[in-house]
Design a protein around this nucleic acid. Structure first.
Length: 272
DNA sequence: TCGAAAATAT
DNA sequence: GATATTTTCG
């Protein structure tokens, strides 16, 4: 709890409940290296400014160094950057939203780490990351169920300060009540099956971007070779509006940096 | 692979 | 000290 938190609290609420609602789409986490490579390290975009500020109120600097590991460039077929110490993943409201979105589409039943992860299509996200988050999210949901309430803002003490993040994203109704009959999900569209029922091994979808910094890269680094990105059928769900960058942020705060502490921070890039 | 608990880190 | 995220274990 430092100054950073203070800022967070001060603003997180402002940008949380996005009127955009849940939009199933894919985001991309770009490492600083990539960002730099693409010349998009610092998006002067006013829109994202707030968030960026929030996240790195203290100070965030793109650490291009260190990236050597993953920025191997060798690209295809390499799976080294694995045992490496991954920086702690910071679940931003945006990221969490992706998560909730995925879970919603999959339905609580099929919402397992692996599937969720795949659906999210967030480069750099690991199954464990999701699993961990899911675990916590479930607990959150249980709590919510505890006091059957509107679940919305107007609730009477429905937003424990302990669930800032989770509160940032609206919880699909079906998530809350165990009410059976329809424990599944019902969406107007989006045949998730297609997306989920493929590519058994989506392992590391790391670094290396085969596409030049030219133009735009909606879903640049995704599945490994052979796996074509989009396989949605019928109505596509791509809204292609919110890009996300994942960068390594160095903690300047702790002076006792015995080990370079890096934190993965996700911040939206582009417009939405 | 999933999920819960224990361990760490911040 | 509490919380967030990771790691370990069944």
């Amino acid at each position: 709890m430092r100054e950073e938190d203070s800022n967070w609290f001060a603003r997180w609420e402002e940008e949380l409940p996005s009127p955009k609602e849940l939009t199933p789409l894919s985001q991309t986490l770009i490492t600083p290296n990539l960002a730099i490579a693409f010349d998009i390290q610092n998006t002067p975009n006013p829109k994202i400014s707030p968030l960026v500020h929030t996240l790195s109120s203290a100070e965030f600097e793109l650490n291009s160094a260190e990236l050597g590991g993953m920025a191997g460039s060798s690209g295809v077929g390499d799976e080294p950057a694995r045992t490496q110490k991954r920086p702690r993943l910071v679940w931003t409201p945006e990221l969490h939203k992706r998560f909730v979105d995925a879970v919603a589409q999959l339905g609580i039943k099929n919402a397992v780490p692996k599937t969720i992860m795949q659906l999210m299509s967030v480069d750099g996200l690991t199954r464990e990351n999701v699993a961990s988050h899911l675990q916590k999210y479930r607990l959150y949901l249980k709590r919510m169920q505890g006091f059957s309430n509107s679940g919305s803002v107007s609730g009477t003490g429905v937003d424990p300060a302990t669930d800032h993040l989770f509160a940032s994203s609206p919880v699909p109704a079906h998530f809350l009540y165990p009410g059976r009959g329809n424990s599944d999900h019902y969406m107007p569209f989006v045949p998730v099956a297609a997306v989920v029922g493929h590519a058994p091994q989506l392992q590391q979808q790391y670094r290396h971007f085969g596409s030049p910094p030219n133009g735009q890269f909606e879903v640049p680094f995704l599945p490994r070779q052979s796996q074509q990105p989009a396989q949605r059928m019928g109505t596509s769900v791509h809204s292609s509006s919110s890009h996300v960058l994942l960068s390594y942020v160095e903690e300047l705060e702790s002076a006792t940096a015995a080990n370079g502490r890096k934190v993965l921070t996700l911040f939206p890039n582009g417009d939405d």
